[in-house]
Design a protein around this nucleic acid. Structure first.
Lengths: 257, 257
DNA sequence: CGAGCGGTTGATCCTCCTCAACAAATGTGG
DNA sequence: CCACATTTGTTGAGGAGGATCAACCGCTCG
């Protein structure tokens, strides 16, 4: 593969032209979305924004009036502790709404930040409210997508609560593989993931040093490698087993909601 | 206080007669619920069920067609690991829907089980679907209540990921105090919590032995005690500080959704 | 009365953290 | 282009928080 150059060179397909491409893939992996509903979504979105990495996209406690859809790049939701520790709640991939829940919560209790340069699409709360008033099925699909976040949260609770360091990290890379695969951002058994080991640590409730050791072990076990911002999975079955990963919680059956 | 006798003697107010009492308190702490909407909820509920403790209420992977509202008792959502370990995702108090998300997910990826004898009210998915079709504001309030679960999940991720054992446990008891207070189930700075130390351990990602030691320490520090199924908080401010607890994530402002 | 569960305490072990040093990669200004 | 700073990754040594194993107590219930 040719070396990628620009900060947003993550994308090399024509899909880059449609900001809803990944969202539609994500939704249609779970339910039937009509042409009309697709159009309603298109009519709901507003301006496109670009941001460099390490910027706060939504700050905790600040009232917001629009939701943000991630089009390109990686984003995380996180909270900081008083002693400087940080915990990532969720790592977001293109096609994810970053703060759809802000529509009803009005303000978030956590921060949302870019981990890479990102491209975002804004959607006013008013438009989403209209959807809940006039298009109940589409509204249910949006509701569903917040339930998916909650299911991912629960799996994270299990990971940090009960799994070993090696298992946690394996699980995280498995999850990202499946989620990126749904939106067409994997290349065979590998995917780009331009984040640091410290980020992995904050996501898995470990220290960066220990993450480094576990990554080394995963490499030596021949399961996967994470180098140069790229994840390469060598033994998918064994990696899943090590992380006790099963994709049930990602609800990938297409069924009416 | 007189000794409570029966398995369901948790309740000593007249509210016991209205199965929606706690739910209405919970919803009205966050938004204005009209008389009409209250009536719609009343028309949506079906039979009342009672179950002993330690029963599975909803099993992972089984398709369900109704949601369950907890009226009385304590319930948890949990997952088991292959080696016999268990992690609680959330601990539910009266007024909580245990599986409102099953309405859209159709089946859950985790189990829901009773931790005490419980009283439940069933609500068919069809009724909830009707609400999303005809009563968008009420539907948003239901959506909101699933977002509240997600916010509680996120705080749990932070706890198990980054907080010390003492801090985690303090936080858990703070959260339960506030949530029980909203639905009128506290008595000053104490509340009934008829669960075991092993349950606390599974909720906080620790072992029962270590929970026991931390509870002892909290007692010796004069912050709180948990004995005979009763939590007594002696120093609320210091307990909050120890658990780094703030109730922001419970969204207790009443504002339109 | 014995069984079983929940709680308590001690001794020991081990995963993961902390601290520290250094290497490699990346970025910056001259 | 190089010199330099900064960030990220890597490795080692030592330490600590929590797990594990085990024994025992008290209570409840059949």
């Amino acid at each position: 593969m040719a070396k990628l150059t620009g900060p947003l060179a993550n994308k090399d397909t024509v899909s880059g032209s449609d900001p809803l491409h990944e969202l539609l893939l994500k939704l249609r992996a779970r339910d039937v979305l009509s042409e009309e509903e697709e159009q309603i979504l298109r009519d709901s979105i507003g301006e496109i924004k670009e941001l460099p990495r390490a910027k706060v996209i939504v700050k905790a406690g600040v009232t917001v009036s629009e939701c943000t859809l991630l089009v390109e790049g990686f984003v995380c939701r996180y909270k900081d502790l008083s002693d400087g520790q940080r915990q990532l709640m969720e790592l977001h991939v293109p096609g994810d709404f970053l703060d759809l829940h802000s529509f009803l919560l009005k303000q978030l209790e956590h921060n949302v930040g870019s981990m890479t340069p990102v491209r975002l699409v804004m959607t006013p709360h008013d438009k989403i409210r209209d959807i809940t008033e006039k298009h109940p099925h589409l509204a249910r699909m949006l509701w569903f997508s917040t339930l998916l976040d909650a299911a991912i949260h629960r799996e994270r609770i299990l990971s940090v609560g009960r799994r070993s360091a090696l298992s946690r990290i394996s699980h995280l890379f498995c999850e990202l593989y499946v989620r990126l695969n749904v939106v067409g951002l994997t290349d065979g058994f590998s995917y780009r993931l331009p984040i640091t080991q410290a980020d992995i640590a904050d996501a898995s409730g470990l220290t960066a040093v220990h993450v480094n050791r576990m990554l080394k072990q995963l490499r030596e076990m021949g399961l996967m490698s994470f180098r140069n911002n790229e994840v390469v999975i060598q033994d998918w079955n064994q990696l899943q087993r090590t992380g006790e990963f099963s994709d049930h919680y990602l609800y990938l059956e297409r069924r009416p909601r």
